[in-house]
Every structure is written in C-alpha cells, then in structure tokens.
Amino acid sequence: MTFSSHARTFAGRPVVDVPADGPLPEVPGPVSWRFSYWHFDETAEYKLSEEFRAAFDRFVAQAGPSVESLVIGAWGYAAFNHAPVAQLCELASRLPALRALFLGDMTSEECEVSWMKVGDVSPLLAAYPALEVLRVRGGDDIAFSPVRHERLRELAVESGGLPREFVAAVLDSELPALTDLELWLGTPDYGGDTAVPDLGPLLAGERFPRLRRLGLRNAEIADDLAAALATAPVVARLERLDLSLGTLGDAGAAALLAGGSLAHLAELDLHHHYLSDETAASVVAALPGVRVDASEAQEADEYDGESYRYTAVSE
C-alpha cells in the first residue's frame, strides 16, 4: 500500500480543499481546510518553497482567525522543499483558533513518504499551546524533541520508518491530556530502527496516564510487539489497541492471546496481517465482546527458501 488519495475527513470533520485562487467555498458547518501547493523545481535548494510560503500566507490573511482544523498537503516538492514548520510557528498568532493540524497529507505521486523532508515537528506544540490533535506524515529527517503540552489529546506519526530517537523524544515528553497515541514504526530499510525495549516506559504504563488508544502500526516487528503487549501493564487501561498495517503472523497472534489481557478492549485492529485463516478466526472467537478487525490478509513472499512479509507502507 502507498498513499493513493488524500484524507477525506480529519479531526471528525470533512476535508475541504482551499482553491488556488478566489474566495473560499461556502461550507455547511465546521470543516478541516486542506491547503496544498505542489510544484517541482529541480534547481531548488533544500529549503521552504517560497511559492508555498506566499500562497499559504495569502490563505491565512483570508481566513486565519476562523481556521480551527487544518490539513497541509504538498509544500512545493517535499523531497526538495522542507516542511513549513517554521512558517506555521511564525503564523501562530494569526491562527488563534487552530485546534487540529495534519502536516503531510500527500499521495505517493506527489512525494513518496520516505522522501518527505519534515524536520523537527515539536516546535509546533510550543507555538500552539491550545492544539488538541497533531498528525504528521513523513520520513526524511523527521524528528521530535521532548516537550510539555497541556492540551494535546491525539498524536499520530505516519512513517515508513520511525527512528528510535523520535520515539524516545515522544516518550520523554509530558503530555498529560494525551488519550490517543499512534506511531507507524515501519522498517529498518527506511530508518525504522525502534525495537521493543525502546518502548519500555510506554508498555510499562509509566507514560501518558490518560492514554486510551494505542496504535503501534505499520511495524515490521509486529510479532515482537504482540508478544510484549500480551503482558504489558499499559493494556489494562486501553480501550482500543491497533497493530494494523504491519507483519503480524500466527506466532505473534498466539502470544497476544496467551496473555489473556484483551477481553476488556472495545476494539482490536489487526487489518493488513499475515495470519492464517484459522488463526484469524481464533482471535475473533477468543474475544467475543471485542470488535476485531482481521481483514486484509496478506500472503508472504517465498524466495530461495526464505519467507518475506512487508509492512503496508515503507517507501
């Protein structure tokens, strides 16, 4: 799977595109405005696109005080141009109502996720102390620094490979309101070198006391994660657990069930997995009160006597 379409909803609102020129369209209620400015300049230096900067500034001048939810798509060509983190921070006083931000809503045709130059996204939290939802997509030089933020409820990071330094900085952050954490761990081929021990404070329940949904998605180490989660203290206070988009196999599912700690969940998401039909059915049968999504079964590739499983998103 690659990203083949743009988000249709974000933060519980329909996404409406900002037109290239002219007034904003009339909308029937609260929306997430999507701003995108794609252009390719092979001579560009690795910096913010000046064309994006000017166009986005015009949008903020037009609608800034009323924007509550914002989706940022292409920022020039994201393999060459850096994400507009600094510009968003500079414009914080002109976006006083912003409560939800999605940075990086691009298809693979606009830019492969592993090529997207994002940088350190934590300054966004310092610039927007009232932000409640932050979703980021990217891969190249994506980074985070430990931060304290009183209002953030949802943090999601979509990547084909999330470095352990990024994960460590998230876990070192003070996010007392956080209820929903989603990390796409990816594969080492694209920088995803996070291992189960790196998640120790999270799995032990020592971080984020209000956490109710945990997504460790798109993970090549899905079997290891499942085995660790089987007895992890954090699971007891979760309502939803998401191990989707990864390489979960029969051994991981068996270990997860053996822990006996999932029956209280409202939802267990395993879609895009490598379970046999029998194992998938056994998971559903073992958790009759849980909404289990075991759809999108994958077949491992066999080559020269070796079996290969793939995450849904890498490049």
Score class of each variant (00 low, 15 high):
M106Q: 09
V157S: 01
I142F: 04
L229M: 11
S159K: 05
F3S: 05
A143K: 03
S114G: 08
S314Y: 15
G186Q: 07
E315K: 10
L48K: 00
S122C: 14
E112R: 14
Y274F: 15
L95A: 02
A195N: 07
E278T: 15
D250C: 05
V290H: 10
L88P: 02
G160Q: 07
D105N: 07
S5Y: 00
A143C: 08
S276L: 13
V27I: 03
A127N: 11
R153F: 14
H6I: 01
P25K: 07
Y308N: 05
E296F: 14
E132L: 11
L185P: 12
T311Q: 03
S244Y: 02
G160H: 04
H264L: 13
W33K: 09
A126Y: 00
A126H: 01
R58T: 11
P65L: 06
V157N: 01
Q87F: 09
F40S: 04
D105F: 03
R212F: 09
I142Y: 02
L270K: 06
L270Y: 10
A232E: 05
P129M: 12
E42K: 12
W38S: 00
W38D: 01
A204G: 14
L175D: 06
A228R: 14
I221G: 04
Y77E: 01
E26F: 03
R53T: 12
E68T: 10
A55T: 02
R210A: 09
V147A: 00
A312C: 13
Y308Q: 09
R137A: 02
V118R: 01
A219L: 10
R207K: 15
L287P: 11
V133M: 11
L216V: 14
L131W: 10
L171Q: 09
F59N: 04
D193L: 12
R34Q: 07
G22T: 09
V121F: 09
Y310K: 08
A54G: 07
V121E: 09
A263R: 06
H149I: 08
T187G: 10
V60F: 13
